[in-house]
Design a protein around this nucleic acid. Structure first.
Lengths: 92, 92
DNA sequence: CGTCCTATATATAAGTA
DNA sequence: TTACTTATATATAGGAC
């Protein structure tokens, strides 16, 4: 989405990688927020820059998202154990 | 980005909320992946639809992202304790 | 439900200051 | 760097299958 088309591969030049990171990061967070609001979804987003800096967003709270994620995963495991599980079928 | 401009607020109609969710979710995940590759960032994204379904992406693994997140938060707490911390200054 | 089809709205790659 | 500018690439709203 710019003057030129780009290929999705690691940007070698450190400066332009930083610039692109900054631009795309804000775009990504904006879209995450819009999805949460428009569609009443719970969203958790964590990004570490290549320099190690942390950026985060959670529509509720990150703790909530991580806890819920853990629970969903547990249930998924339970479902995987049971060959007749409807959950398993739907989730694959 | 469509035939009409929309306001960012919860979509009332359940059907179109689902449709929008599906479209925007795929767009969001695509951008998350692009950011990770282009900028060599570590990204973790978790989304629960309003019907409770889980969608996730992690450039490494979700466990890795959550663990790293926890560590970063701990360090941040440490920094917050120290009024002279450079970390605190940078992170606000 | 997904998938395809466009007209538009947005995001953003390169520049420029 | 740290913003702006703007031409283009992409995303997606609304509609049709």
């Amino acid at each position: 989405m710019g003057r030129g088309k780009i290929v999705i591969r690691r940007i070698d030049n450190s400066t332009s990688r930083q610039v692109t990171f900054s631009k795309r990061r804000s775009g990504l967070f904006k879209k995450a927020k819009e999805l949460a609001i428009l569609c009443d979804a719970e969203v958790g987003l964590v990004v570490f820059s290549s320099t190690g800096r942390l950026y985060e967003y959670a529509s509720s709270s990150m703790k909530n998202v991580i806890d819920r994620y853990g629970k969903a995963k547990e249930e998924h495991q339970q479902a995987m154990m049971n060959p007749n599980s409807e959950l398993m079928v739907r989730e694959l």
